[in-house]
Amino acid sequence: MKPYNVYSSGIKDVNFGENVKIVEPVNLYGCFIGNDCFVGPFVEIQKRVNIGDRTKIQSHTFICELVDIGKDCFIGHGVMFINDLFSDGGPANGDQSKWRTTKIGNKVSIGSNSTILPVEICNNVVIGAGSVVTKDIIESGTYVGNPAVKIK
């Protein structure tokens, strides 16, 4: 017996809208990607994720389960979405009851290398590159920093 297991990445059980552009390699499974979307290389989108129409997701981004991204959004390079807050002091170890949801509104731009914890972000928001969003954003504007705060 081999001392390791090999799992193949790829595109499995994805519901695509029309005119979607994908640049491989990607790992997409059990998700929905709306009309006229773009997904760059080295992106992982897990099951139970919804991507709205005309949203663009740049390379090296990770979108975990329970994320809903609205229409006309831009997700920069290397953006990380988190669904486990380590509420018991460590990882949930697959206990999905400890995971939390993230909802991104329409016309939201998230700069490269940002980290998005389980939050809600309203419509018409810009998140600056490298920001860490730790709380809900309920007012349109531009947010930067760690933790992200409104600057205009």
Rank of each mutant, 00 (worst) to 15 (best):
Q58E: 15
V39Y: 01
V149G: 04
G52H: 10
I22M: 04
Y4L: 11
I137D: 05
E18Q: 12
F74I: 07
C37N: 05
M80P: 00
K152I: 09
I22L: 09
K2L: 13
E65N: 03
A148L: 07
D68S: 14
H60S: 07
I45T: 06
I121M: 02
C122P: 00
V132W: 03
D88P: 00
I75R: 01
G30N: 10
F38W: 07
I45M: 09
G34C: 04
G145D: 12
P25W: 14
V79N: 10
I69A: 08
T101D: 14
G78N: 08
N113H: 15
K150M: 14
D72C: 06
L85D: 09
K135N: 12
D13C: 10
E24I: 04
K103M: 08
K150N: 12
G40M: 03
M80L: 14
N124W: 04
D136W: 09
Q46E: 15
S87N: 10
V14E: 06
N50R: 12
P3T: 15
C73N: 12
K103E: 07
V49F: 07
P91M: 11
V133Q: 03
I33G: 00
D68W: 02
V67S: 01
V14Q: 04
C37I: 00
T134M: 15
E18A: 11
T142C: 09
K135L: 04
N15M: 09
I69Y: 05
K56H: 09
N27C: 10
G76I: 14
D13R: 12
I104W: 10
D88M: 12
A148Q: 08
T55Q: 04
G90Y: 10
G111E: 11
G141T: 09
I22F: 03
L66T: 04
S140M: 02
G76R: 12
V132T: 12
P41S: 14
